[in-house]
Nucleic acid binder design. Sequence first.
DNA 1: GTTTAAAACTTCAAGCTTGAAATAAAATTT
DNA 2: AAATTTTATTTCAAGCTTGAAGTTTTAAAC
Lengths: 152, 152
Amino acid sequence: MSESDALSRRRLRTWIRLLRLTKGAENHLREYLRVIHGSTLPRFDVMAALHRHRDPMKMSALSRELLVSNGNATAVVERLEKDGLADRAPGDEDRRVVMVRMTDKGREVFEAQAKGHEAEVNAYFEALGPDELNTIRDLLKRIEGTANDQDG
Amino acid sequence: MSESDALSRRRLRTWIRLLRLTKGAENHLREYLRVIHGSTLPRFDVMAALHRHRDPMKMSALSRELLVSNGNATAVVERLEKDGLADRAPGDEDRRVVMVRMTDKGREVFEAQAKGHEAEVNAYFEALGPDELNTIRDLLKRIEGTANDQDG
DNA sequence: GTTTAAAACTTCAAGCTTGAAATAAAATTT
DNA sequence: AAATTTTATTTCAAGCTTGAAGTTTTAAAC
């Protein structure tokens, strides 16, 4: 077994552990949203993206930001719209595009959810102090730098 | 804004970035399984768990290991079974339990997929050398140590 | 200026996923 | 030993997700 085979194995094991951690955290946050707010993770993610952007954003920008398919973005936004939490309107110049934004009600609902959400994340990752956070930031940047070469 | 508020914010941002990274990697691996093997991530994950264990395992052990619901495990195994890649049998002593295992065909199919899968992971995380892998392992252990206290 | 190609979304079918309710077997109580 | 509770799994409805096919609008080529 060559040295790079051993390295490959370690990368695989690390990936599996990383996946487990994120899945565990997601389950934890899903539980929070369900029990306390009667909502779901995908709805929260979409609202968070809309909240970050303030201004109306294109459907395609939304799905790109969340790394989900266009069809998925359509489906989730459709449900939010039905609940009066978001709305869509055709673009002004280019009429192919659809601009989506949160409603006032949506913003209100989201802010209530986001507060507790941040608290849950904060508790879940309490082991990470400033130094660890710096370390992770650097690692993530380095991975992103090379990993995105694989795509497209 | 207190110091711990700033820390909370940083933890949240780190979580969001981590989530994006894992989602990106998952999308990459899903593409690989779909294009090269005509399969999916959940099927691969179930087969990987069965492969790790060698011996037949309880359905409940499977869903616990993958951090998915029992119903989900049932559904995915059912499809694998239909394709002749896995099979289920009632437990010997305790007849409530269902033991699941891979078939010979399943093992064969999985090993072909796993080889390329590891190569994709290896390429995706090429930025991580031995030192970085050690760092991540320590971080993950530390997070797991405290995070699991949150769960019920 | 028409035809062709490209881009932005939506629709759809199939599979994935959850959480609650149902089923069945084993363990515990009484 | 009968009744109750617990444990293991499946079933089910509703929502999530993808990728492919379809629609509509814009851009490019001719």
